[in-house]
Nucleic acid binder design. Sequence first.
DNA 1: GCCGTTTTCGGCCCGACTGTTTTCAGTCG
Length: 578
Amino acid sequence: MPVYNSDVAEIFNQVADLLEIEGANRYRVRAYRDAARTIATMSRNVSDMVEEDEDLTELHGIGEDLAGKIKEIVGTGDLEQLEEIEQRTPPALATLLEVEGLGPKRVKKIYEELEVTSVEELKEAAEEDEIRDLYGLGPKTEDKVLEDVERWSAVEERTRRDVAEERVEPLLTYLRDLEGVRRAEAAGSYRRKKETVGDLDVLAISGKGGDVIAQFVAYEDVEEIVSEGETRSTVVFRSGLHVDLRVVEEGSYGAALLYFTGSKQHNITLRNIALEQDLKVNEYGVWDTSGDPEEPEQVAGETEEEIYGLFDLPWIPPELREDRGEVAAARRGDLPNLITLDDVRGDLQMHTKASDGRGSLREMAEAARDLGHEYVAITDHSGYIGVTQGLEADELAERMDEIDEMNEAMGDVRILKGVEVDVLEDGSLDLPDDVLEKLDVVVFAIHSHFDLSADKQTERIIRAMDNPNVHILAHPTSRQIGKRSAYDVDMGRVMDAALERGCFLEVNAQPDRLDLDDLHCKMAKERGLKVAISTDAHTQDELRFLRYGVGQARRGWLEAGDVLNARSWDDLRDLLER
DNA sequence: GCCGTTTTCGGCCCGACTGTTTTCAGTCG
């Protein structure tokens, strides 16, 4: 059985949770979490590294001990240490840590004094008013626990980026219009352009915190006020989205923006650099601690650029702030020049009424032209999947004539002849070669048999790429955020095969797909494999989804040169020759 | 448990808020 990075990370996180409840040294606990994170976010497969006998201690946060444990997990699928811990401490206690207001200390207390080991028992204990009698806890904590447990199953944990966007932008407008507010921005994972956000972090500059907070909690979308202080408040929107507002003074704006944008790990890395220079970074600024430690002197804080500059670093774009090597790259002067929406010159996947889209050929082309695109590929579905009413070969031929006429009529945007052809279970394609070879762009996709083994799925995709007529693998893992997980596939092999055959992978910009994800984008870049950022639009409005795809590509360190459709049609056409 | 242009030992980010306290621990981000 293959051991994936996520398996190793999960075991380490479980060890960390249980050790923490047992009251182990917090830095030891953190070491397990750091290691889990390193393994989970690296683009290589750790079991490959073990197999090739590479030195695991080269990895950040992995020393001799954890390297040995990784080898054990890769070899056996389990960790003996975890089994031993689970003899002492019930594994389900780790789940209780996820309940709001419960940390390791309280979980330990509730377990030891009330023998609670599961969420169900926790709920019962709270309903029997047993929690409030414990020393250090009280009725409010008990109520909060009960409320959170009851809400748990109903609420989805993270909010998709587009859904968050719909609520953030009006809130920012509201805040900016308040008296005394000079700026308001969303920070956090939203600013880092993550595909989903947990809580939403919003920052406002104002001299008078209390007033702004009072107006914030009175905002129309607020359903519940979780906390309300002088400079900080947390509320829950009607949609269930948690929103944090922090109010800071102008001189601290850059420091606060940096701090609340995160990621946490990025900030920790910066703070450690600061410590080497006798500087302290907090959300109010950067402070020189070499003089009187009681009264440090503020040396920066108004802008992010100024703060990075103190550490001899260029400003690092928020999308890169994930502690995935961006600080080291910045130090070397080696930060990528990230692709922007303006760099994109066309769109290589969209649908019309001819299959499951809503706009006509002309409507889609005109909408794309209005966005400034130089070219668009019309890629209606092939016939295999009944629900999407795909095109048969003869219909596709008619379509090509139509496109020729439209190109002559319009002139200001080039319409490319394309298709999104289905890959059948055995890796063959749903349209004959003599049809495919006449097209400018052949997008190929998996829409069925998601449950094949990783080996079979990988072989299936590679076999499809063996056909010299295909160009771009659409939504390469077929995951749908919050709905369907990626199918099992060896993405490294798929990428290598694409590179050998002159094929490309897509970053599908639909906000519920964003597939390839950020780590896969980075993986492609490291191999020198180019990607297309395509909207897969089914309506004219969806052509604007490009911004989500660009956001994901930026998180994956991609530059204009890594992206097919950041090229002119002439250059792109050369690349599509196989 | 990890790590090192001070260090192989002694550190490991730091402040706000809440609820429970009677001066602060626990949790959170």
